[in-house]
Amino acid sequence: MTSAMFRIGGDLRVRRLGFGAMRLPSDPGPAREASLAVARRAVELGVTLIDTAHMYGWGANEELLAEALYPYGDGLLVTTKVGVAQSASPAGWRLDARPDVLRGQVEHALRRLRVERIELLQLHRIDPDVLLEDQLGALRELQTEGKVGRIGLSEVTVTELDQAQQIVDIASVQNRYSLLDREHEPVLAACEAAGIAFLPWRPVAMATSDASAEIAAVAAELNATPAQVSLAWLLHHSPVILPIPGTSRIEHLEENLAAAYLDLHPTLLDRLDRLAE
């Protein structure tokens, strides 16, 4: 069996299988009420790590989580991300990690989440137009002021992680990664060597027909779903992996979290490992 817990930064203890809140609708109405119910059910089921970001609804997702969960129970970590701003571009957003922008987004997050300190704050993307020292220096200042506990990164290379570690202590990395998408395996290896939490986003990737058939076959042997097998593989693959699958449906949430109890014996792990070849 895999360990169910991990200490982010060496001291912040969370359950390894968390919840990504990005998919929760926040506009008023029945969909919002359903979102509140999903967030509350996640905590009822033992989730202690919930991931959000300034970019998710431009603060609306943070406000939604506060409405659902405040006052937060002991041990519940709501982590957020900064460094992306709205724009008039077709994408509707741009990277913006200027120190004053980062500080402003952190101040807004503190207010929206109704906290005095964000225990884990992640830089959503490194902004190529701003010196890395300035970006991380701004977060370090907020850390010194007691407004941020630990600093993480998102979508970084091994080189960028190494450079960042020369400036601040890095507690987490959030990169795209899954059973069938292992582009960032070197980053995972670097995190594992340093004891850094690795939070894979999009942890259940779309599969090719051959891969889908093999995952489905393993799932059938375990009386599980392919998504559960994919999440269980992540938990077995590295002790620093903390998956944060997201959903807007309670039944899907319950299915995802049940993956923590799925035991993959070595023969099955070997079959799944070979899918990336």
Rank of each mutant, 00 (worst) to 15 (best):
F19P: 04
L45W: 07
R103S: 07
E44K: 04
R23C: 03
N61E: 04
L131K: 15
V43W: 12
P128L: 05
A88F: 14
L132D: 11
T48W: 05
P90L: 09
R94H: 10
L64G: 00
D96V: 09
G104C: 09
L64V: 01
V84M: 15
E44T: 08
P25L: 06
K81I: 06
L132I: 14
L49W: 10
R40G: 09
E67R: 02
L121D: 09
G104K: 11
S35G: 10
E62P: 04
L120G: 03
E67W: 03
A68H: 03
S26V: 14
A88T: 14
R125M: 10
R125L: 09
W93K: 02
E44L: 01
H124K: 13
L139S: 13
V101C: 01
H124Q: 14
L49P: 07
L64D: 02
R125K: 14
Q105L: 08
A60H: 09
R125E: 07
L123G: 05
R15P: 10
A85I: 11
V47P: 01
L113H: 03
Y56E: 00
L139F: 13
D51N: 14
L131S: 15
P128W: 04
L49K: 09
H108Q: 15
L69T: 05
R94L: 07
L45C: 12
Y70R: 15
L36D: 11
Q122D: 07
Q122S: 13
D96W: 05
T80L: 02
V101Q: 00
R103Y: 08
P128V: 11
Q135P: 06
P28M: 06
F19V: 12
E67K: 02
V14S: 00
R32Q: 05
E141M: 13
L77G: 00
F19K: 06
V47G: 01
Q105C: 09
R114T: 06
D129C: 10
H54Y: 15
L120D: 03
R23Q: 13
A53H: 01
G92R: 03
E63H: 01
A68C: 04
T48Q: 05
G75K: 12
L17M: 01
G92L: 02
D100M: 09
V47M: 05
A66F: 06
G57L: 03
L95G: 12
G29H: 12
L110E: 01
A37M: 09
L120W: 02
L69H: 06
A37Y: 12
P71E: 05
K81G: 02
A37F: 04
T48L: 00
E62T: 00
V14M: 03
V106I: 13
T52G: 05
R112N: 10
P71Y: 03
E67M: 05
I126L: 14
D129Y: 13
Q122T: 11
V115M: 10
